Amino acid sequence: MKRFKRTIKRLFMVLFVLVAFMYLNNSSLLTKVRDEPPLLLAHRGLAQTFPMEGITGDTCTAERIYEPEHPYLENTIPSMEAAFIAGADIVELDIKPTKDGQFAVFHDWTLDCRTDAKGMVKDYSLAELKKMDIGYGYTADNGKTYPFRGKGIGLMPSLDEVLNYFPEESFLIHIKSADPAEGIQLAEYLLKLPKQRLNQLTVYGDDKPIRSLKKQLPSLKVMSMETLKSCLLPYLGIGWIGVMPSACENTQLHIPEKYAPLLWGFPTKFLNRMDSVNTRVILVAGNGGWSEGFDNKQDLERLSPNYSGGIWTNRIDVIAPIIKE
């Protein structure tokens, strides 16, 4: 009986030491203080927003926008410029291949929802796309009025135009399809850029194009569901002892707000660990569905007071002034 009691006592001691180690090794109490403001990522620049309820992959979001509070249309140079002026550190944009081998900056699978044209972006040359009115389909009152009709002609830019217009700014480029050939095409384009410019760019998208892109540009920061899982699943297993999985190195993580507290050391120690392996963390609102962002003061109140990683927002004009305060 005495031996049994001694064994139980030792087990409790070992368990106590283990729990104490796990707590102290992942506590913000014993880590470098982070006093810099959060990094602000403006989704599609400064864009028209809409209610997220009931959205599916086929929803035409231009037909359900809120009453416009500003004159900008997503994925255009004016909207990106407005976002940077407002305080964005990074602007996210969407790309689609054109018929003549360029990349147009445009979000939807088809042109039908937002523009006065039909079909796919890939069915048109860039010159043809420039003639379209990308503000044609926007309405806030179920089609009674269309406040942006006639104002979006010529506003669909190419990726080349965007990067030339903003030579010093950082971008998150979204490959919209699951086609690995688009990853190869983008890699061939990016390989022509100086290394310094590549350091300002990150690419995310489906597993297949990101995988093919990464093969040709292994040093480029990328993000896909595959790269996210390859980092975070091992981290959940061994991160509590401070060991960083190799898959977490030199990448970008888009982490839904709902799951972030499950990560060892979140927020401060987790962010410091990711900084140590040159990885950027972007927090997405909610469960990560449909590009939900931190878009108002109430959203920001859910953040930890010492959170200084990246924040995904659809309303950089609202969020940046609050952060600056």
Rank of each mutant, 00 (worst) to 15 (best):
V33E: 15
R315W: 01
S230L: 09
D100P: 02
P245C: 05
Q298P: 00
D112P: 02
V105F: 06
P71Y: 06
T110I: 02
L253W: 01
P245Q: 01
N199Y: 01
V222Q: 05
D94C: 04
I316F: 02
R315E: 11
L191V: 08
I90A: 03
T279V: 07
T115A: 00
C60I: 05
H174E: 15
T61M: 07
E81Y: 01
T227H: 04
V162G: 05
I8Y: 00
K269I: 13
K258E: 12
P147W: 00
P78W: 02
L129Y: 01
R211A: 14
Q200F: 02
L193N: 07
P78N: 09
I65H: 09
V277D: 04
D100R: 08
E81V: 06
L11Q: 03
A320G: 12
L29H: 09
L155P: 08
L262F: 10
D317S: 12
W290H: 09
L236F: 04
R114Y: 00
T98H: 02
T139G: 06
R6L: 15
F148D: 00
P38Q: 08
N250V: 00
L29Q: 12
E67H: 14
V318S: 11
F84K: 07
S276A: 15
V277K: 07
T98P: 14
L29I: 13
K144M: 01
I210Y: 04
M132K: 12
E53M: 08
T59R: 12
I55G: 04
A62I: 06
N296F: 00
L18Q: 01
G150P: 08
T76R: 00
G137F: 01
T251K: 07
V243I: 13
D295W: 00
R211N: 06
S276Q: 08
M274N: 06
N199M: 11
M274Y: 03
S304Q: 14
F50W: 15
S308C: 07
T98Y: 03
D160W: 03
E182H: 15
K195F: 04
I85G: 09
N164S: 13
V33D: 12
I77H: 06
L93F: 07
I323V: 14
K258H: 07
S304H: 15
K99F: 04
K144L: 07
D112N: 10
K122V: 09
G310C: 00
G54N: 12
Q196R: 12
N287E: 15
D35L: 11
K269T: 15
F171K: 14
A83E: 11
N287K: 13
R64S: 12
Y138F: 15
E169P: 05
G205Y: 04
K297R: 13
G242Q: 10
P51F: 00
F148I: 00
P261A: 03
F171Y: 10
F148H: 03
